[in-house]
Amino acid sequence: MRAFAYHQPSEISDAVTLLTSVEDSKVLGGGMTLIPTIKQRLAAPTAVVDLAKVPALKGISDDGETVTIGAMTPHAVVAASPIVQARIPALAQLASEIGDPAVRNRGTLGGSVANNDPSADYPAAVLGLGATIITSAREIAADQFFLGLFETALQPGEIITAIRFPVPLAAGYAKFKAPASRYALVGVFVAKLAGGVRVAVTGAGPGVFRVAAMEQALNGSFEPTSIASIKIDAAGLASDIHAEADYRAHLVTVMAKRAVAAASR
């Protein structure tokens, strides 16, 4: 770890000012990725802008049609939230399965979504539910937000302040945990919304993606059997010592079926 300046603003505007005025500054959410990266000297920011003390980034609210979660809400809080449990239980369940207790108590929704790790859980829910990412500058639809491996539509100095999730008619998340890291080797979030079914896959590829063929089939009949024979093309999927691409492709179908089954319960 190299020395850096540390800022702890209490207003979003101050955080944005710090991020845009100091070159090589980094925003700190829960620090689940940034801190280990700094410790390993893979990142050496000149300044770290910690959002922990910005009250506007916290809280969970329900307006009847959507649930809005502040960006700095830790996973454990989402998992235990009566609002999330009642309105989008699949999201609470997803949050309860991220990493381990230490990660769930430190890691944040905004941090996970902004980082867009290809194996992170939250991007599947954000894309699967068709959520809206609210930032310090604008609102971005999930379909326009995730741009591939660790890439998002966020501009330099732009901070996620909250995410607004539509309340689905039904939703389910099924995750094949990588045995060591507990990241999603393959995770599939399936949501039945007023506008139709959305299927989002994390872990399998270079970034979260939707599966149109499955969405179509599930719009016809929201049953696991509807998608049992839909095969995902292994080309372009991740392949590593834990799972080869064709195995990941197979798991997408298996996990999608289980997510539909979970949504139907």
């Binding site: 045995p179 060591a180 890291s181 990241y183 590593d240 010592i241 834990h242």
Partner: peptide
């Protein structure tokens, strides 16, 4: 679970951390 894996061509240790080298846990 456990496997120390080297890349055949580069000789790099691919299972280089506890993120990739799976030590069994209580829930296993």
């Amino acid at each position: 679970y456990e496997n120390a894996v080297y890349d055949d061509s580069s000789g790099q240790l691919v299972s280089g951390s506890l993120m990739d080298y799976c030590v069994p846990r209580a829930d296993h």
